[in-house]
Structure formats: C-alpha cells, structure tokens
Design a protein around this nucleic acid. Structure first.
Length: 587
RNA sequence: GGGAGUGGCUCAGCCUGGUCAGAGCGUUCGACUCAUAAUCGAAAGGUCGCGGGCUCAAAUCCCGCCUCCGGCACCA
C-alpha cells in the first residue's frame, strides 16, 4: 500500500527508486547481551560497551523486517551476592529478585529493550545447566581434582581470593588481595598474614574435591573454529589464539558454596551436596535456556530448532573475552554442538569516566539513575553513539565533550534542521507541504542524498560501526542545512516549494534513521511531521523514499525536539565528581 | 604476546600501497535571518612517533627503535 504510493510518486517525478545494496538476512537473529551481575546498579559503562550497541543493532534489524530477538538475564549466583544478601538480612533469592527488577527498570529508563529478560537462578536455567553438565560428563569432558583453598572457620565459608587480604611479600603493603597486590601490581604466591575479609580472623587452608571442565580437550577444535568463523574481530581472535598456543588450563567449575546451581549426582562419584557450579559455568548457558523459554512460551516454537536455524550474536565487553571466545564455545562443542556456536561475538572496550577507570569501590562511576535525573536519556544514547567504535579500545566519558556533542551536533545540526523545516512549513504554508515545481540540479542532488542514505547507514549499523553510522546521519543533516540555506525559501524564490517538499522528506528520513539510536526523540520528530503510524513500524529503507506527499499536513504543535544543555549544568556535574575518590574501600 | 602513536581537541584512512594528507569540534573573517546566540561561506592549522628497507610510488607493506594503554583465564 505505502509502497505503491511511493512507486507512483517516484514515477510521477521521473525517478527510478534507488536500488542499493539492501541488507538481506535469510535467517532470524538471536542477540544476547552480557549478563549484569545482580549486585549493583547499571552504570554508563555497561550501556556503552554492551547494551546500547546491542539495542541499536536490534532496533535497526527489526526495521528491515528481519525477525530478531534480544535476550538477557541477571547473573544471580556467587559468593559476593550471598554475602551482600546476608549483610542486608535478605535471602539471596529475594536479593537477586530485587536487582533483577531494578536492572529491568534501569534499562527501560534509557529505552533499552529486551524481548526476554530472565535470570540465571530460574528453574529452567538450573535444569538446563545440570543437563549440560551430565552431557559433558557422559562425553568425558569432566574430571575431578582436589583443590586446596582458604577457609574461614568462624564464618564457616570457603573464601575466594578476593575475600582474603594480607601483606604483600614483595612490597610489604598491607591490606592487599591474596591474588593481586594493587600497590606493586604483582601476584603473590603466598600472601603474608592472611585475614578473612568478613571477620578479620586468619583463615586456614582446606582441601576440597572439585569438578573440572577439560578445556584442554578443545584446543584444536577451538583454534579451528576461531580461525574459520570469519565474522570475529581480528584483534580479539589473535589475542585468544595466543592464549591457546600457550596451552589451555582445565577449569574448576564447582565452588564450596550454597548459592548456585546445585550439582547433580553422578552415579559412582562422591556426593557434591555442599557445592554448586561456578558462576561462569552456568551464566552463559542462560543465553540458551532463556531463549528456549522465550521460544516456547512466547513464540510457541521449539527453542533448540530456532536457535540452530538463527544467526547467533553475543554482545560483550572486553573483560569477558576469555569466557566467550573459549569457555562458551568449548562447552557447546562438548555437548556436540546441539546448540550452535556464535556467529558473531561483538566485543567492545570499556568506558573511562573523565579519563579514569570506573570503580565502584572508589565511588567513581555514574549510574543511569544519576544521569537520567539530570539529562534526557537520549542524550546519553546519542553521545555514546557518536563515540563507540567497533573495537576493543576504551572510550572516555567527558562532560565537556558530552556538552559539545549534544549542543553542537545533535541540536545545532540535526535539531535545527528539523525545526527550521517544520516551523517554516507551518509559518509560510499553513502546515501543508506545498506543490513542487521544476527541480533544479541542487534539488536533484538532494533527492539522491535521500535515495542513498538508508542503505549507507544500514550497512554501517549492520557492520556494528555505530559511530560511523551516526556520523553519516550527521553528514546527511548537515547537507540539508546547506541545501536549505542555499535555496533561501524565505526569499520566496520561484522554486522555494521544492526545497520545503524535499526538506520535509529529509526530516522523515532522519526520524527513521535516528530511531535505532534515540527512539523517543525520533518518535517526537515523527509526531511533529504529522505521521499517524508508529515510527517503529516503518520500513527502514523507506527512509530513502519520498513518502511525504504534496499537500501533507504536518502537526500543529511544532516545537524544538531537543533542549540545549546549559553550561552551568555541566559545571555542576563536573563539580560533583571532582573529589569523590576515597581510598581503599574494600567491598 | 595484544592495542595505539595523524592539524589545538577527538578521531577516520592502514587489511586490498598511487585524488591519503581527511572529518567533526574548536579558532579567525565574512554572509544570512526560516531556525534553540541555531545556519551558510571562506581561511588558518599536520614533513601522518623516530630510523632504515621493498617499490616507479608508503600514513598505508617489511625490519629496528622510542613512548603510551591495557595483561580481572583463579576475583562475577
């Protein structure tokens, strides 16, 4: 229907629709974002490295008409959560339920949507993890070994390395972790005067029997997969292959802990009833178990079949490269690829805040709640979109550059073009797109810009080049500011009408192009254009068509889409983060 | 072993050598007024970390050196 109108219209002005390289994906897509650990607030670093890129990608692909599902969950198990819950006098189940809800709300507050947001502590995941374990055992990829570790008799707990502090044998600094001295950066073989972080008493060493996943079985098959995949980032792959060449170590996948996936009894082995699986054994399996549940309950379809027929893409930050490039594929190989390995693992660097690493313990980070209290969430999305490269390199959140990008690029360039076009139409044409007259060469150039833009930007987003895609949109908008300026419609030239008709179509294109990046603002543009449908239901490639026809009536209420950031607001933010660094808070 | 060193700032280009010396922001001058002190035009500004090499030709390939960043596979 829409298409027909457009075709007729295109023909009426004598143009063939542009036949660019459309992104055609034969398969459905399954996108997962790394699981947030359920013990703290989502901060801007999470958004930049993982969730925003995944959300932009998903929104774009969906507009092209391909089915895509964005899956995520909270990572609920492990010692830190157990201890936090105890401190807050909650059951760990209640504790993680609260964080699961909070995280969902946090994501929603910046328009990051999931088709299914689950948790690793779900019954479905627990069962799935246990089944995978049994399968791995059956396939002879599991072995048992005795491990010696710190144990606090007072707290009655085995203590992970971070829960034991002491004096560094190299530099004699006190209060250093048992596995890493932050003062001199070295890794002590044995820390002096060890103490339990929880109670301060000295721990003892205690033996315990554990299951190990024989990662070393997969050195060759992983190497083959990494080399032949073709879609993995080159630098990361090189990095990982290097690990393999130095030899992979088998993974201890069990923990002496009560809060985790219970270990199923294997006939003929000792009972592991006081132990659970290690978080990294179960959490990535939750990608699959969540998708299975989603497929069965929502899509009413077989999860395993859909998974294997789809293209699988995991979005992660560089801190979990090891787990996703080696551990995750090895486990899938270990169950004979009943669930296919990832097609892409989109890996990005971390976010620095004012040139320093984010740190919860040093109170150096900015939470989503903190940001959205002061600014439009789309400003965060836009800002990150302009600076997130497709690489492992870290990016920096800087208040001054944030201020400049929003005011000078989003508002002065894009916002201004939209507003000048719409308010001119309202003021001089009573809100109705005027009749066009003969097109001149500049008009034709403008039509060509529109004809190509959806294809150009789409290709960039699909290739995960978010920053370049955003820059291309800015370039598009800048072109139309130049166009508008040079046509001078305010002087009522003979061909002024053309510039309004073409500019209005460019505004329509911009609304569609921006939707994956800043959905709420894009919807506002859409409304002011006077379009009745939902923006999200538009075909992406219609951004390269001319669907705003002569005589179309725009909305009566034309106001600036974006509000400029005042210098003082930025100075306030900077002042707030000036001296928040406190020292050596251990959590 | 990995990544990076390009105009004041942030970066693109390097894989597939030859309009590759670019973009945005910032700066200076000028124009315009439809528009949120927005816009448009013009200009200034870099021997592409250093030294060699291959080549008719290198920011782009090879070798050496210097500097910076990360090295949380055990900690989620």
């Amino acid at each position: 229907m829409d298409i027909k109108i457009n075709d007729i219209y295109d023909k009426s002005i004598g143009y063939e629709p542009y036949k660019g390289p459309k992104i055609v994906i034969e398969k459905d897509l399954v996108v997962t974002s790394a699981l947030p650990y359920a013990n703290g607030q989502i901060h801007v670093g999470h958004i930049a490295s993982t969730y925003l890129p995944a959300d932009v990608f998903t929104r774009f692909v969906r507009m092209t008409g391909t089915k895509i599902y964005h899956i995520c969950a909270t990572d609920d198990f492990g010692t830190p959560i157990l201890i936090r819950a105890e401190n807050e006098s909650k059951t760990p189940g209640d504790y993680v339920r609260e964080w699961n809800e909070k995280d969902k709300k946090d994501f929603a507050s910046v328009d990051i949507n999931f088709d299914y947001f689950s948790k690793t502590s779900s019954q479905q995941n627990i069962k799935f993890v246990q089944d995978v374990f049994k399968e791995l055992y059956k396939n002879n990829h599991i072995k048992e070994e005795i491990v010696v570790q710190f144990f606090c008799s007072f707290d009655d707990k085995y203590l992970p390395d971070r829960y034991v502090i002491g004096r560094c044998p190299f530099c004699n600094s006190d209060n250093q972790y048992s596995d890493l001295c932050e003062s001199c950066g070295r890794v002590p073989e044995q820390i002096l005067n060890p103490k339990c972080v929880l109670c301060g008493r000295p721990p003892v060493m205690k033996e315990s029997l554990h299951y190990f996943f024989k990662l070393s079985d997969f050195e060759n098959s992983l190497k083959t997969w990494l080399t032949n995949n073709g879609n993995l980032q080159g630098d990361v792959t090189k990095y990982v292959l290097n690990w393999i060449s130095t030899g992979l170590q088998d993974w201890d996948i069990t923990r002496d802990l009560t809060w985790g996936v219970p270990i199923p009894k294997i006939a003929g082995t000792q009972d592991y009833k006081d132990k659970v699986f290690y978080g990294w054994f179960d959490n990535h399996l939750c990608y699959i178990s969540s998708f299975n549940t989603f497929a069965e309950t929502v899509l009413k379809n077989d999860g395993k079949k859909l998974w294997n027929e789809s293209e699988i893409i995991h979005f992660i930050g560089k801190d979990i490269i090891y787990h996703h490039y080696l551990f995750l594929p090895a486990i899938r190989l270990g169950i004979k690829s009943q669930y296919k390995l990832p097609d892409r693992i989109v890996t990005r660097g971390h976010l620095l805040f004012q040139n320093r690493k984010l740190s919860k313990s040093k109170n150096w980070s900015i939470t989503l709640g903190g940001f959205t209290k002061s600014f439009n969430p789309d400003y965060l999305r836009f800002y990150f979109s302009t600076i997130i490269p497709y690489s492992q390199s870290d990016i920096n959140f800087d208040w001054d550059s944030f201020y400049e990008k929003i005011n000078n690029e989003l508002i002065s360039n894009i916002g201004n073009f939209i507003n000048r076009t719409l308010s001119f139409t309202k003021k001089h044409f009573d809100g109705k797109i005027p009749l066009k007259s003969t097109l001149d060469s500049l008009d034709e150039q403008a039509l060509t810009e529109i004809r190509q833009i959806a294809y150009a930007v789409g290709e960039l987003i699909f290739g995960n080049e978010i920053d370049k895609a955003m820059k291309r949109i800015l370039q598009f908008s800048s072109f139309f500011n130049q166009y508008f300026q040079s046509k001078e419609p305010w002087k009522q030239h003979a061909d002024s009408n053309n510039s309004i008709w073409i500019s209005a179509n460019a505004v329509r294109s911009i609304a569609i192009l921006l939707f994956p990046f800043i959905p709420s603002s894009a919807q506002k543009i859409w409304k002011q254009l006077g379009s009745p449908e939902y923006l999200q239901d538009q075909d992406w490639y219609s951004a390269s068509e001319f669907r705003i026809l002569q005589g179309h009536k725009i909305d009566n209420d034309i106001t600036p889409i974006f509000k400029r950031i005042e210098r003082a607001e930025i100075e306030n933010q900077k002042a707030e983060f000036k001296d928040t660094e406190s020292t050596n808070i251990r959590t």
